[in-house]
């Protein structure tokens, strides 16, 4: 398992408008591309051999699975930001302001009052 690598995916995709567009339109294809050529990059020249996604992590990213990502300790800020970018505008038009953010919270309601899965340490 690599919580770090899941976070690296969210971080690198959220900050790049073209990757973000592809993650919205065809997440499976983008996750494949990312694992092949983006995730391993340390910089333009260097490659890292350290991390890889588990099947569960890959599925969570492909399915935009907010609950699974929360439960595997993906960083809350990265997860919120990227899925707002993907869903907020569409939901706002259909259901009104903050509807996506509130549904996001509702999907995690079973965690209220419990210690959340750690995002670090």
């Amino acid at each position: 398992m690599s919580r770090y690598y899941v976070n690296k995916f969210l971080f690198t995709v959220d900050r790049d408008p073209e990757l973000l567009r592809r993650y919205k339109e065809d997440p499976r294809s983008l996750v494949t591309t990312w694992e092949q050529s983006i995730g391993p990059k340390l910089n333009d020249v260097e490659r890292s051999t350290v991390h890889s996604l588990t099947e569960a992590e890959r599925d969570a990213l492909i399915n935009h699975d907010i609950v699974a990502l929360f439960e595997m300790g993906a960083h809350f800020f990265l997860s919120l930001t990227i899925f707002i970018a993907i869903y907020d505008e569409d939901w706002m038009q259909k259901y009104g302001p903050l509807s996506f953010q509130r549904d996001f919270a509702k999907r995690l309601a079973h965690w209220e009052g419990r210690d959340y899965p750690p995002v670090g340490e």
């Binding site: 929360f70 809350f76 990265l78 919120l80 509130r102 965690w111």
Partner: peptide, 10 residues
């Protein structure tokens, strides 16, 4: 403050 969790955006 809650971000990306069950208590956000209340």
């Amino acid at each position: 403050l809650e971000l990306g969790g069950p208590r956000q955006f209340r």
